[in-house]
């Protein structure tokens, strides 16, 4: 099974404060992995490092077997940022326009979308249950619907690896379950590999195949089944889920 993300001995300092040091983990093809940890533990920073937006102090990150600094196949990776499309609430665009934008690498520079791109767009919206909203503007959608459009945006590009930074934040309880079900379906039926940052530990544990915990500057429970991590999470309270296991 291909190793899609390989993080080795990674250290990062933020504003002269070490955020984490010597963390290592990997994500294999077909995994549905959640990263948990308290606020400020460095989860989103880790995501930015994986995306090559930040440079680590030490260690290495490989994507699809290539060092992230040389990695060029970004079309293989789909990313939904922490706020998804929530910031775009007043952006005058329809769901269809937004989803099609992410087909950029397939459409190509200075070219216009063809029928195939339009079909892929509608298929992606359909797979997240938003086909009826294709022509609806983002401003007329709920938070949950905008989050689904963000997912459709990612799916349209058909990435092998999906990186999701708190995909259910700001989404009401009913829609959270629906979103997790969509992610599970994508993972199981379409074989998408998912790495997801979440605070929603309890519900996420029902869907993911694996949980990693980042806390006090180190990564814990790598390789353990999720019940162990959840146990730690509840034992030590959500603010510091796994600190007693940290060696630093």
């Amino acid at each position: 099974m291909e190793r899609l993300i390989d993080v080795k001995d990674l250290s990062f300092t933020y504003d002269s404060e070490p955020l984490f040091s010597d963390i290592s983990f990997s994500v294999n093809e077909g995994d549905f992995t959640a990263i948990i940890g308290s606020n400020g533990a460095g989860k989103s920073t880790l995501m930015r490092l994986i995306l090559g937006e930040l440079q680590p102090d030490k260690g290495s990150i490989s994507l699809f077997g290539q060092d992230v600094r040389q990695f060029k196949d970004w079309h293989k990776i789909g990313y939904v940022k922490q706020s998804g499309l929530q910031e775009a609430i007043n952006f005058p665009a329809t769901a269809k326009e937004v989803v099609m934008a992410n087909l950029y690498s397939q459409i190509g520079k200075l070219r216009i979308p063809n029928k195939e791109h339009k079909r892929k767009t509608l298929e992606a919206l359909e797979s997240v249950g938003m086909a009826d909203f294709a022509e609806s503007p983002l401003s007329e959608m709920s938070g949950g619907q905008r989050q689904r459009v963000a997912l459709a945006m990612l799916l349209a590009a058909d990435p092998k690896l999906m990186l999701l930074d708190e995909p259910v934040s700001g989404v009401d309880s009913k829609n959270v379950t629906a979103l997790y079900e969509i992610l599970t379906r994508l993972n199981k039926e379409q074989g998408k590999t998912i790495l997801m940052i979440t605070h929603d530990t309890v519900r996420a544990s029902n869907y993911v195949s694996r949980m990693l915990c980042i806390e006090d500057g180190c990564m814990l429970e790598e390789g353990l089944g999720h019940p162990d991590v959840i146990g730690h999470y509840h034992k030590h309270h959500s603010l510091n889920p796994c600190h007693d296991n940290c060696e630093h």
């Binding site: 970004w74 940022k81 690498s105």
Partner: peptide, 23 residues
């Protein structure tokens, strides 16, 4: 006209546009 989709994507989200390959 030539940069229509590039300008749209950058205005929507510069970070996502960069990841999608927009120069």
């Amino acid at each position: 006209v030539l940069l229509y989709k590039e300008l749209f994507f950058i205005s929507l989200d510069e970070r996502l546009a960069r990841l999608a390959g927009v120069p």
